[in-house]
Design a protein around this nucleic acid. Sequence first.
DNA 1: GAGTGTAATGCAACTTAGTTGCATGTGTCA
DNA 2: TGACACATGCAACTAAGTTGCATTACACTC
Lengths: 152, 152
Amino acid sequence: MQLSCITLFTMERVLDRILSEITGRGFRLTRVRRAVVEIFLDRGLPLSAADVIAALRPGNASINKTTVYRELAFLEEHGIIKEIRFLHERVKRYELAGGDHHHHLICMKCRKVEDIVLEGDLEEEERRILESTGFRVLDHSLEFVGICQGCR
Amino acid sequence: MQLSCITLFTMERVLDRILSEITGRGFRLTRVRRAVVEIFLDRGLPLSAADVIAALRPGNASINKTTVYRELAFLEEHGIIKEIRFLHERVKRYELAGGDHHHHLICMKCRKVEDIVLEGDLEEEERRILESTGFRVLDHSLEFVGICQGCR
DNA sequence: GAGTGTAATGCAACTTAGTTGCATGTGTCA
DNA sequence: TGACACATGCAACTAAGTTGCATTACACTC
């Protein structure tokens, strides 16, 4: 992955913030934990447990899948990553939490995922839903499926 | 399920249309096939394979799960139902295809699901996405999670 | 109404994704 | 350096869905 100096610098800061958040709450900074957080930062995309395991393999010969599942649960529980699911996919995915609120563009051909930020998002819609149905929206998930520029 | 005469009449018409679509293409109208379509019409909500199996049980003592999975695949393949997945759920769900384009309100407390139709939907957003990223949106999925009127 | 071909069904065994219990290992702090 | 509790590894398990293959039953013809 090619990174500019700025991006690298930002990533280091985010990594430090996450790691000190973990230690600050009395949890340990283990080899696996650090590696998993770095993988999420490095990829910047929603990853499944299988993705994380594959990414860990080169350096750390045999990391148990149970450990990875538990690490993902730990990071989610502490608000560092959050679960998302894509349409027609059976696997859980996670991405770093705490970034800007965004949605995903998923290419049907190459399966590439891009983030997208919508102007004004859906606040207006959610207000209208409350008015017309009495349903109070607390969260939403939105994903777009189609063909990316490279595949057209 | 309480139904008005109008609703019952409409359901009958929809059922007939679906069934004649199936026979018209040279497929058989079996006991299970008819029952599954009727269940979707009757419930009017996204159902999982387990839901369908449970709904079949009372009348049809032992319908094999393989049959149900294959029936759902058949109905999806022929555009009669379509797959949807809800956030944080691992199971596939299906709902009748061909109705108005809509989204779902999912109550976190009672798990009830309501349909919602958005004014103008997301056409405007999709046009903007094409302009700014070159990604051509062909489909989207949107669901709202929150608290329904009854649970507040 | 009987015969026939093929779609549909049932059963068992399998796959994939994720989880649980329990014994063992290792970071961190005193 | 030692000790405690968090973290890890292994094996066995669960849930959801799939596959292969033998059997059944629609729907069509006669």
